[in-house]
Design a protein around this nucleic acid. Structure first.
Lengths: 195, 195
DNA sequence: CTTCCATCTGACCGATCGGTCAGGGTCTGA
DNA sequence: TCAGACCCTGACCGATCGGTCAGATGGAAG
């Protein structure tokens, strides 16, 4: 009865997600998506203004969670920032495996599109937090390796249950981040307005 | 004098590498490459049979080194395999930063092309070695995260000197691989035909 | 029955893609 | 001087891309 409602919009969204994960955003044509849904290409463009809008709607939930993680990170320093960043990103990556798989590799190019204007800055801050806000090259490199590797792993291990993948990644992340040996974000000579 | 030789072939190769690293293989047209070189698209296709052949010649040296690493790995087990895999891959990734940046993200699709027929198997074996040939999900996941992350890091940190990047990545890899606590590939109850 | 609106479609558009081809320069060696 | 190899090019090809548009369909409201 109720299920007789076609919900073409949602079907297109789901089909696009499936195709994007296999052949990438650039490598997937609107025709491909339409074929998978079983409608015409014009129908796809009736439900979505253009290809970019389709991608934007697909990524919206993941981006929302990423933003909230960015908020949580605000103000944290040192090991606390590392732990929250690791836990938050692993959780996000596991939950939005498919969305992350979509962006795989095309990240830098897709970020240029206006729909993803601030994602670059957010992920930069996330990387910075995972490095414990350290400016040592080793810490920054480790943070990048982890973020990129976790994304890739989530896209790859689609068959592993969420809990198991999350645990493995979090364990790895805690083992791999470069430890911030001294909790000295700034020596007590400067003004400490919040302590 | 001698430098007057144009060497268009090499210039095209270099220009292609530059463009591919920025906009990816798919995202770079032969026209783009020709424009960067300052010749016509037809000239590009005079020096290279097609776009795929251009990519293949670009990747050939890196693939050669990857193959030799694969040979070195043959027969190694446990921690020894992990160490050789980590060291070998970090070295390869740092040396062939640009080549690896080219493949960034388009790896799975590009591997389908006949020129890269066996790369998938080799990288699978490399991942397996980095996991110490363990079948524990944690070890396999850590290996994948490292391989993917190291590739991404090499593509990203183009400004860091080779030595510094290599040291940081190797330190990270040794810290991050899941340790193979006991060198027991198989308990002595089953038949041991080679020991 | 008529009107209206949401949904959907085939036909079509200009742009760009990878790739082909005939031919024009230029240099060399006979 | 001439033949031929080498390098390079503009013009062109069919295919496919994202996107537009006029119109067909069908159900609900008046």
């Amino acid at each position: 009865m109720g299920r007789a409602v076609p919900d073409t919009h949602g079907e297109i969204l789901a089909a696009a997600a499936r195709r994007f994960t296999v052949t990438g955003y650039r490598g997937t044509s609107l025709q491909d998506i339409a074929r998978e849904v079983g409608c015409s290409k014009a129908t796809v463009l009736y439900h979505f203004a253009n290809k970019e809008a389709l991608l934007a709607e697909l990524m919206a939930p993941a981006i929302e969670v990423l933003r909230s993680l960015d908020d949580q990170l605000n103000g944290l320093t040192g090991a606390a920032a590392q732990e929250v960043a690791a836990q938050g990103f692993v959780d996000l990556a596991v939950r939005f495996r498919q969305e992350i798989a979509v962006l795989r590799g095309e990240f830098p190019e897709l970020l240029c599109q206006p729909a993803f204007a601030h994602i670059q800055e957010i992920s930069d801050r996330l990387r910075d937090a995972l490095a414990g806000h350290s400016d040592r090259p080793g810490a920054r490199i480790a943070a990048l390796v982890l973020l990129a590797g976790i994304s890739e792993a989530c896209a790859e291990f689609a068959d592993i249950p969420d809990d198991e993948l999350r645990l493995a990644l979090l364990t790895l992340a805690r083992r791999a981040v470069e430890p911030v040996d001294a909790p000295v974000p700034h020596p007590p000579t400067t003004e400490d307005k919040d302590s």
